[in-house]
Every structure is written in C-alpha cells, then in structure tokens.
Design a protein around this nucleic acid. Sequence first.
DNA 1: GAGCCCATGTAATCAGTTACATGATTAC
DNA 2: GTAATCATGTAACTGATTACATGGGCTC
Lengths: 186, 186
Amino acid sequence: MPKENKTVYPILGLLNHKNMTGYDIKKRIDEEIGFFWDIGFGQIYPTLKYMEKEELVTNRIEASDGRPNRIVYSITDRGREELKKWLMVPAEKEYVKYEILLKTFFGNVVSTSENIKRIEDFKSRNQGNLAMLKGFKENLLEVLDYSDDHMYYLLTVMFGEKVHGAYLEWADEAVAMLKSKEEKRE
Amino acid sequence: MPKENKTVYPILGLLNHKNMTGYDIKKRIDEEIGFFWDIGFGQIYPTLKYMEKEELVTNRIEASDGRPNRIVYSITDRGREELKKWLMVPAEKEYVKYEILLKTFFGNVVSTSENIKRIEDFKSRNQGNLAMLKGFKENLLEVLDYSDDHMYYLLTVMFGEKVHGAYLEWADEAVAMLKSKEEKRE
DNA sequence: GAGCCCATGTAATCAGTTACATGATTAC
DNA sequence: GTAATCATGTAACTGATTACATGGGCTC
C-alpha cells in the first residue's frame, strides 16, 4: 500500500506525548500499536531522519558510554500541525492479507482433516492474542480517569477484542461444519 | 510483508479449477478473493511469466483480432504439487494495517466530534461490504450441493461476515462512548 | 557463559501500487 | 459520444522486511 508515507504519523503521535528515541518508539509500538499497525526498526530510523529533514521533529543527542548515544527526538510545531491535519481526513480502507482465508478458499484441494487442523492452529494462535487484549483492557479501565488519552487507547483495544473474538467464533463454527461433513462421509 | 512470493498461490488455486487468462484471474480475485487478499494486474502478469519459467503453469495463445491475443494458462503437475504443499503448512499470521485504529489511538489530539465523524465514516463504508457479503452468502447456500468447493467459499464469506459485523458493532459502541463523554463535558 | 536488553544504523531485496501505453468492441 | 469491458504488458517508484554490523551491561 505505497504512496504517502504513513509511518510518520504513528511516530508523530507518540512524540506528541513525550520525547523519545527510535528505540523507545519501537518499544511502544510493539506494546500498544503493533497489533493493528506494525513497524520495524528498518523503517523507524530512516523515517526519523526524513522527518528531521522535513522539520517535523528535532533531536538532541544524549551521550552514552559503551552503547550508542541516545538520539532523543521531539515533535515540532509543524509536526503537530501535520498530525492534526492527518487526523482530520477520513481513515483509508483497511488493508488486510489473510493467508488463513486464502488456504481455506482452496481447502478442497486437501483433506477435510487437514483443513480442520489448519483452522485449529489459527484458533490457538489467536486465543493468546485475545487473552492479551483482555488483560490490556483491564489495566486501561483502572487508569481511565487519569488521562483523556486512555479512552482512545481503550477504543482500539475494544476493536481488537471484537475482531479477535470474531476470529475465534468463526474458527469454532468452521471446525463444526467441517466435522459434520466428515461424519456424513462415513 | 516480503519474502516468498505468495502471489503464486491464489493463481495456482484458481488455475487448478480451470484454465484462465491473467485478465480472468484478476476478475475472479476481485469478485471473491479480493476482500481478504487483493492482487493487481501489475503483479499478476509478471507472476504468470515467473510461474511459467518455474514450470508451474503452461500456456496456449488464442488469436484474437483487434484486441491482444488471449494467453490462456493451465496448471502443471508441478504447480498442483506446489499448491498442495503450501496448503499443508499452517497459515501465517494475519497481516493488517488499520488506519482507523491509528487515528483513533491518537484521537485525543482532535475534538471528540471529529472522532465521532471519522468512526461514522468508517461504519458507513463497511456497511456496504457487509451487505455484499450477505448477498454472496445467500447465493452460495443455494449452490452448496453442486460442488465440494462451495463449502470452502462459504467459510471465507462467513469469516468476512463475522469480522465486518464486529467492525460495525465496535463503531456503534465507540460512537456511544464518545457521545456520552461529550455530554458530560457540557 | 548464554542470552537478553539497550541503542544505533545500512544495504539488499522483495512486495505492491500506480501510471503509462495500446486499441477494438459493446452497451447505454 | 461516453464509458465500460476485454486484453496485454512495462517502468518507476514506494513500502516493508530481513540480514548484517557493532558492542557494552545485566541477569540467570
């Protein structure tokens, strides 16, 4: 999904809260944003440089001994403007690639039991995600009043919960259908 | 999500049913597969050439006057093997990019009403999708006994229904939460 | 002593999109 | 006459991942 570098926006959004290094940014993305928008180091560091050139951020270098110096980025006024501008335009269409559905679509090429196995694997893989999201939600509910931001974080977690819940429901129904098909065959 | 060209598999899967041109493949993808795995012309034509080189497909040229000749591809035994082999390994993790959640996560930067507007836009955009999927499902239920493939198609549609249903539920709850927050402010 | 955390980055490669080029036929 | 459908493709570009490079400090 090229054209217009979206990577700048999560970075701007995070820097709008507090100054951070690329490494810090990566950590927060992994913890809270990664489940709907993942970004790797290989994108963060070059993007930060680009953003500096565009005067969306500035940085201050903190000397470190032993390890590389910390480069702490701060958002500029221009950066804040860009962030706001982006937030005012409607969100683009969801971009998804579901290999599980691609394989299910062509499922008839292999045995019914092979399909069941695959879907059960999908289910167990996503059960962990749902549990994680639920834990996350509980924590957020506790600190909901401390900041207006928390409600927005909660909304994203609620989304994750709903969608992952839908995954599991589907997996159960799908396996049930396939099993009843297997029985008819006997 | 680079590494290993997944594009070959939907193409193999479709050619496993019947011989097709690149144009035909694109059409079927748009109709039935695109909602979970979209592919453009710019990927199909080069991939078909690559697949021919790898002997996963062969082709026969049908002369046409006026328009370009039709290049009709057929799957080879090697292609069928590859398809089966791929179907036997567990599906990889879902790849998603939800701009709607990225914007919601940073929603506190703009007004509550701006957030409501965005989510309502998201909702109406996805209402159409759900309606389409429901229509699709009805058609499939009617022809379910004609081919074993149809159940697998149905499973993918059911997935879409569940997930898009979750989208809409979330949108309603999110808007309700934001509206009650707006009222408290007054 | 093994492995993880901190902390930066680059280069190579691959995946995916968009724009361009061509042009006849058919339906409204 | 205008737009959609049929039908092929290439080139330029951007987005994203993976692998490589470096290396000290801390925990088990």
